[in-house]
Amino acid sequence: MTSVARVPCTIVTGFLGSGKTTLIRHVLANANGRRLAVIVNEFGDVGIDGEILKGCGNENCTEDNIVELANGCLCCTVADEFVPALDEILARAPQVDHIVIETSGLALPKPLVQAFHWPAIKNRVTVDGVIAVVDGAALAGGQVSSDLEALSAQRSTDNALDHDDPIEEVFEDQIACADLIVLNKRDLLDDNGLQRAMKTVTDTIPRGIGIVTVSEGKVDATALLGLGVGAEDDIENRKTHHDTEEDHDHDDFETFVVPIAEVDDPADITKRIADLAETQDILRVKGFAAVTGKPMRLLIQAVGPRVNHYYDRPWDAAEERQGKVVVIGLKGLDRDAVTKSLAG
């Protein structure tokens, strides 16, 4: 007999650099026996996040159960991208127990939640909950992302700028649609910083939502999976800036991929990224590189001048040792200068 139970889906939203991918990687590694599938939606044309998640090597979520969508944010391409991805996952045997959806950092989650009413999927899946991951270190500094110092300074000195910054609207809309907020990067905050970050979130929350604080995305999977909210049936309580708009755009941002030559010292590539963050309107750099003499792949994640790196997995024997990073920045940044510096 075929089960009629709907497969629960957890939507993980959050701004650029908040730590969504790191959090999901931790959940995959600590799934407590659940068979998971992941849909990764990236704002760009390279599957960096998918590559990071596939490096987990966890039997509860094989590489085949990670579906990457990189042709635009799911909030804009529900019919063309999201429904076929769900069809692909739901057709697999054995059936998955839970689906985790990582939206791009620029996505509005509410249109995606509304898509669960589509006839093609409404009887097969449900939104178990929407998780908003926020950057505690950035919020403590008065920003929604750690790499927006230049933008904040411009807004404070230019009276001609629109008061409603689109980046802040994205942040507020993600919070407004959430069922649980994960305040990440607790390890970078002292007590006063934590209080400032928490106040920013609580002042933004339009309704009663739980908040958990974590470091390095390490949150218990049982706190995220199994909320049982059914968010698609609670859509009226999720008021956002874009409720009266049929479409939205991402014209304030651009993204591109830079191939990275093999490096002799990880400190070299991290310094180049940090230096660029000081001179260019870069929001995020994420990817991997090959290090001379090292069998492991070097994973690189940067938010502004703060660059983290570690070896995540061995290079496969049949795999070309070719590094690459995706760069996400504000429209108008000097793409040629960034590419020349990073390519090596």
Rank of each mutant, 00 (worst) to 15 (best):
D316Y: 12
D191G: 08
A267H: 10
M198R: 15
A302P: 01
E81Y: 12
N192C: 12
D336C: 03
T204W: 07
L161G: 06
D97M: 02
C61D: 03
A5N: 10
D147E: 12
D334S: 05
A223C: 07
K239R: 14
A153E: 14
V258E: 06
Y310G: 11
C9V: 12
A85W: 09
G293I: 02
A91G: 14
E63D: 14
S18I: 03
K199N: 14
A160D: 14
D173K: 02
E88G: 11
Q301G: 05
E246M: 11
H250S: 12
A289E: 02
R92I: 06
F43N: 01
D45M: 08
V326A: 11
S156V: 10
W315R: 03
L16F: 01
T2K: 13
P314C: 09
C73L: 02
L227R: 15
D249N: 15
G287V: 09
G208A: 14
T213S: 15
K185Y: 02
E169L: 15
P111H: 05
D147G: 13
F288M: 03
V182A: 05
L28H: 06
I273V: 08
G136E: 00
A70R: 13
V100L: 15
T339K: 09
P94E: 07
I273W: 01
P314Y: 07
R92W: 06
V96R: 05
A221M: 00
A153V: 03
A31G: 09
A79I: 15
R6C: 00
S3C: 04
S341I: 02
F288S: 02
G14I: 02
A138K: 04
D334A: 00
H248G: 05
D234W: 01
N71H: 11
A274S: 15
G226M: 08
V326D: 06
K340G: 03
V144I: 15
A317F: 11
L23F: 04
N30I: 10
K20P: 10
V130H: 01
V144W: 08
A267Y: 07
V327F: 05
D165L: 08
D49M: 07
N184E: 00
E320T: 14
L90E: 09
V12Y: 03
G47E: 13
A318E: 14
E254P: 00
F171I: 07
D316H: 14
P109I: 04
R35W: 04
T157W: 03
Q301M: 01
I89S: 05
V127D: 07
G304I: 06
A277W: 06
G228A: 07
V303N: 09
G293Y: 02
I167M: 15
E254H: 08
D336S: 13
V4S: 13
H242F: 14
V125A: 05
D233R: 15
A5E: 11
F256Q: 01
G226F: 01
A176C: 05
T240E: 07
T126I: 11
T157V: 14
K331Y: 08
K331C: 03
C61S: 00
V257I: 13
L36F: 04
P109G: 09
A176N: 08
D45W: 05
V291F: 00
R186V: 01
